[in-house]
Design a protein around this nucleic acid. Structure first.
Lengths: 113, 113
DNA sequence: TGCATATTCAACGAGTACGTTAATTAACCG
DNA sequence: CGGTTAATTAACGTACTCGTTGAATATGCA
């Protein structure tokens, strides 16, 4: 994995990790609290957290023997920025002239990467 | 891979595939045309296209011996919808009261999944 | 000190991802 | 038909992912 955006997309490509992010939207939580809803081991959750941390999607504190996790949405802003470049494609109407109009709209405004 | 959103994120977690999508934003292209900029084999690109197709990000036609690829941005709309749920987190200002305010803002509006 | 709790690290296995090269399929054309 | 071009499929190697269980580390507390 070389680039940051790939790392973020890869981290998001797992429903458990997305559920963890949704839980962290409610506020900080410990590893045990985060693991509780899932039918997998605590160790597996700990690894998911490491993936999220490497992607910059969470940060971790230290309080006694707990390692509270906190959401960091900055990488999600980058995702939003990336996907926004394609907005005009899903907002297009397909009404018969679509091929011609699509060609016109696409001209010279290709998203980067 | 079980759910659609994971499939889409996974497809996007590769810079070559994102570059292919960017190229297709200019309009249809054949496999050879898409492969041309990359230092990898045509077969490897063909596989990337299969991944993008399974994720619903491209569709393919048939014209003689060519298989023109076309961008389908519908899954990107789903990505945009998902990430938008977190918008308030990256739009937050961190000005000292941050912990308290974040707690207030997060209350009761957790993104799903 | 000694034990309980919270979390991580290590080692393993099954499955998947991504690249390669070689062979195959499909369509066009002389 | 036979050859060329476009693209896919097959077989393989290497590496990574995601789960497991067992051991280690870190902190709190009696």
């Amino acid at each position: 994995m070389v680039d940051r955006l790939s790392e973020v997309f890869s981290a998001l490509a797992d429903p458990t990790r997305r559920a963890i992010l949704a839980r962290l939207a409610d506020g900080e939580a410990t590893v045990n609290q985060l693991a509780e809803p899932f039918p997998i081991s605590l160790q597996a959750v700990s690894r998911h957290l490491k993936v999220l941390e490497r992607a910059g999607l969470i940060t971790r504190g230290r309080a006694a023997q707990w390692r509270p996790c906190r959401l960091d949405a900055e990488p999600l802003r980058e995702v939003a920025d990336w996907v926004t470049e394609y907005r005009r494609f899903w907002e297009q109407r397909y009404d018969g002239l679509d091929g011609y109009l699509r060609q016109l709209q696409q001209d010279g405004t290709r998203p980067e990467e």
